[in-house]
């Protein structure tokens, strides 16, 4: 019998478990809804526009805006969008103008708008300790399309956090550059997931992929967590993955989100996945 001398494996890195705060996402937002305020709420993750206490628009640097979603999908061309903003932006009626001029159906605009609003709000209402500001009276140039009650928005945001947590409890892939696993598990992916997988190059983050695909950023997080749970992808610098392509434009290598292991031990990768899966139970 041959014995193989193995160096003792490095200790498993400790990781903060994802916390899901459930109630009171933003006490200030609740108060503004109560007083039926109009204006813009500025948080670290982005902005929420309120009209009489209801949310009419949300924007976040983490997500593609309504214009990007409509243009990338081919629902609207960039010239049509620019013209609408030029014609109706100053009087805050861009949405109305797009529908009245026949560029988009009312239902289609509403659905895309709601998709973009809930998507951006998820990031705006993300955990943050930075100061929050509200500027009274400011209206958004899109104009009213489909106002959403604050309570409904908060409920959906919490539901989305729980959905992500249920798929895979480790949030490391949400913001880090992503790499394909060195020895990926065999997996059948849906066409939507495969579009995400095709754009993973060791540099792009989930937000970059959303912009490239013209999809809501939360949707990409769902696909990314599913792929991470299946062991197909990992955040850069963790779990022994390596970039499948050279970074375009010679970008510097991104900072890892967890302390990098001295060597990529497949046993450790397996143990980590097992631990995460057990935690998710």
């Amino acid at each position: 019998m041959t014995t193989v001398r193995m160096p003792s494996p490095p200790p498993l890195p400790l990781r903060q478990r994802a916390q899901i705060p459930s109630a009171g996402l933003s006490p200030m937002l609740d108060r503004l809804a109560g007083e039926r305020a109009t204006g813009v709420l500025m948080r670290e993750g982005g902005m929420l526009y309120l009209s009489e206490g209801q949310v009419v628009y949300a924007e976040s640097p983490a997500t593609p805006g309504l214009d990007a979603l409509l243009i990338t999908r081919g629902t609207l061309d960039a010239d049509g969008w620019r013209e609408a903003v030029a014609q109706a932006g100053a009087r805050q009626r861009v949405g109305r103008f797009l529908v009245d001029s026949g560029r988009i159906g009312e239902g289609a605009l509403e659905l895309c708008h709601l998709g973009a609003l809930y998507d951006a709000a998820y990031f705006v209402l993300g955990p943050s300790s930075a100061p929050v500001h509200f500027r009274y009276g400011e209206a958004h140039w899109l104009g009213p399309v489909h106002p959403v009650p604050v309570a409904a928005l908060e409920r959906e945001t919490v539901r989305r956090r729980e959905l992500l947590h249920g798929i895979w409890p480790d949030p490391a892939t949400d913001e880090a550059p992503l790499v394909r696993a060195a020895r990926p598990a065999k997996l059948t992916v849906t066409p939507r997931q495969s579009a995400v997988l095709d754009r993973i190059d060791g540099v792009r983050t989930a937000a970059d992929i959303s912009r490239a695909l013209g999809r809501p950023a939360f949707h990409t997080l769902v696909d990314v967590r599913r792929l991470a749970a299946a062991g197909v992808i990992a955040p850069s610098g963790v779990g022994g993955g390596r970039p499948s392509a050279e970074p375009a434009g010679g970008g510097t290598s991104p900072a890892p989100t967890e302390p990098t292991l001295p060597h990529a031990d497949p046993h450790i990768t397996l143990l980590k996945r097992l631990r995460d899966a057990l935690e998710a139970l």
């Binding site: 659905l111 709601l114 998709g115 809930y118 959906e156 539901r159 989305r160 959905l163 939507r192 809501p216 939360f218 949707h219 769902v222 696909d223």
Partner: peptide, 11 residues
Amino acid sequence: ALVDYTSGMAL
């Protein structure tokens, strides 16, 4: 219901 099937949200 009109539903987004990635997020599971009813629009």
